[in-house]
Design a protein around this nucleic acid. Sequence first.
DNA 1: ATCAAAATCTCAAATATCGGGATTTTGTAG
DNA 2: CTACAAAATCCCGATATTTGAGATTTTGAT
Lengths: 269, 269
Amino acid sequence: MSGLNSLDRVLAILDLFTEDRLEWTPDELMQELGYSRPTLYRYLKTMKDAGLLASYPNAGFTLGPRVVEMDYLMRKSDAMVRHGRPHLEDLTERYPCSALLVRWYGQRILCVAADCSIPDPLSSYPRGRPMPLARGAISRSIMAFLPRRQMLAMIEENFDELRSIGLGSSVADIAERMREVRKLGYAVACGEVTPGVVGIAAPVFDTARVPVASLCVTIAGTLAAAYRIDEIGGRVSDLAERISAQLERQRAEDETKQAQEGAPTARRA
Amino acid sequence: MSGLNSLDRVLAILDLFTEDRLEWTPDELMQELGYSRPTLYRYLKTMKDAGLLASYPNAGFTLGPRVVEMDYLMRKSDAMVRHGRPHLEDLTERYPCSALLVRWYGQRILCVAADCSIPDPLSSYPRGRPMPLARGAISRSIMAFLPRRQMLAMIEENFDELRSIGLGSSVADIAERMREVRKLGYAVACGEVTPGVVGIAAPVFDTARVPVASLCVTIAGTLAAAYRIDEIGGRVSDLAERISAQLERQRAEDETKQAQEGAPTARRA
DNA sequence: ATCAAAATCTCAAATATCGGGATTTTGTAG
DNA sequence: CTACAAAATCCCGATATTTGAGATTTTGAT
């Protein structure tokens, strides 16, 4: 059936649960997915037992408790979130702004932690909000620091959008802009995501110095000048670098601990 | 292999990601799960494509972006969370307390929204934190309002724990306590979950008047007396009932809208 | 550029999956 | 409490899919 294997077919069920539609009855799912009744019920039972779906009698199926638990797990145990949070607060205390920590997942960019020091933020950035892939300071702060090969691939894939932002009219042009970002250490974008808002972002690196996240301040354009964008940028890239270092240290510690646990009797005879 | 079907085997991978261990390399997973190399890689690819897992080169696999996104979706679109939040704030403004909205998932009880008005809460109740199933006011506020049959089954399943709390020495005894809770409209528990903390909780109902969640105030025992437990209880059960009503209204609206969309030309000729 | 480790591919055997239809369970209404 | 309709599950043979050993390619570190 439609070229996918059964695993994909089960997981395809999850794709139907969107912002517009968080509840589906089995009949609606059958209709939509084209699975036979026993098959669908088998799939649903599996997903329900795994906690990824939940069913309320007469109200169909919804996303299940496991999702909430797993996100809790990630929030609580994700070293990046743990190390990042104090720095987000540092930034929001210093500037009237929103500060975000945004993870780079290869094909997706997702806010994983945020803090805010202004009463009515022009736009909100809660955890889990997907961010545009090729637009804004966050995006560029990551793209600019990717290995050349990967960066060029990404520029080509998003060429139309990048050009429409005004970053250049050729791949080489845009790559040159990226080089400038790399030299500066942080990316700045004015009104690219939200009109009137300036974004200032710097990358967080993993051990191999590959960007894995971005630390970002978004501040009203009218205020950005007063606080000096270069001042903010310097601080953001400094804090981002500090997170990278903390992650690195953490990783080293974990490794040591694991080696001790994994082979406690492994000292040579 | 081990009596499970392949869907279960794929989803079993998720079970390994716990608080203590959020990163697994393929080799470790092979060892732990006993799958062959190609099979495991196939499974991992599927999960990764679905976004449930993410891999960092040289750092193994972790839970993926999809989890974060789905939780965001649920937070944003869950009618119960939306309707509940203002009432949580109402409670935290009125009392120095934590206020929680906790969903009942049949086998699990999970905090889905929380608010807090005291600087250093004795214990924190963030979204996603699992709550004890048979202990505390939340648990009892739901149990007491379940259909008799289901309630008795649950009492039997958790008999030892319920007795150790001092709710009675026989199923009949405990059922009698539940009857009292039902009559009162809310449950009170002193120090059952956290020493020195009083929990006051009332159920939220679905259309069929089956409890689906609980609204709860947790307040320091030393403060509870001053604010009068019965006063708090009355308010909590009143607000819980209000959420139930809002859910019911919402549901009716959704149904109307869906009927219009689903069969826009269905008016009789 | 070189090499080891990690990830993917190949392919035939075998095993688990699928779906039509009967059957049981659940929830509702009388 | 009983009866009924709807929802969910079970049965079982045909069949397409999954599986794993080993070869092969890709990746990433030095």
